[in-house]
Amino acid sequence: MKVSGFWIGIVLMLAAGFVLAGVADNQFLFFAGYVILQGLIMAVAWNVLGGFTGYVNFGSAGFFAIGAYTAIALHQFAELPLLVLIVIAGIVCGLIGLGTGYLTLRLRGVYFAIATLAMAIVFESLITNWDYVGGSAGAYVITPAEVPFFDSFIEMMFILMLVLSLICVAVSRYLSMSRMGRGLASIRDDETAAECMGVPTLRLKLISTTVMGVMMGVAGAPFPFFVTYINPLSAFDLLIAVNAIAMPMIGGTAVWFGPVIGALLLGTIQQIVTVTISSELNILIVGAVLIAFVALAPRGIVGLFQDFARKRREGGK
């Protein structure tokens, strides 16, 4: 079998992560890296449904938070290993994603988007009133001071997030480049025509919403352990939902690497701004960058490059 550049890239990214963990002492690097990768998973997840399939989800923070709170609830119940928590949170959010898929039976376009937003709001009020996980007061998590194989807990969390990100990127790439990807794209372009061309639109939409849910749940599950204190406000953070949309839009929604580019770029800018100015500015920055892209480059950075390449080809004769 031919080893593709993609898989070499995945291995290189992983190796780079481990090397960084080995040499770097500055804990902030891992902290910032974790946040960027968390955004990357959310962006990749959002794009499976929003970019490939054409259904805009405004409720990303809801999935993320349910992932986080599933982990917290299980953690309160029994001290399960983090990986188990992540898997269960993925399953729970996958099931919620599946339910979201059934919404697409009746709701298209902006109505679907509003329904997902409403869903997130319902989840938030449920969590706020659930005392077992701390209600509105929130919950604390005590993280181990020492972990095996790693210099620090945060370093381990960073590597964990890197592995999860790479898995999500690989899944998203598979979805977009396989036969299924063409099916999803046909739904995005014209659902009625797709169905009449033999595309099982409902089944594909359910797969799409489920995969999105699983990924967002997986992104959310480690969050309480990363921040050690979680409340509904921080889990259902507006910035999480906005980033999940903005990163793919900025990178480009039509291809799998669009959200990756957008997440790395926007995530890095946000970390720099957080350090040099203030984290309060982040939402303003996303807003401004997003408006600029929607107005000037609706197909994102990938689209800009494609246009540039086409012009060169046509201009170069």
Binding site: R179, S186, D189, D190, A193, M197, G198
Partner: peptide, 26 residues
Amino acid sequence: SRSFQIPRPFRTMSILENMLVPMEYA
């Protein structure tokens, strides 16, 4: 198989990709 009176192409796809959808599904 049917055609649509008001054309419903898969607009983000090339002509060839439009053809591949029914081939890969129907």
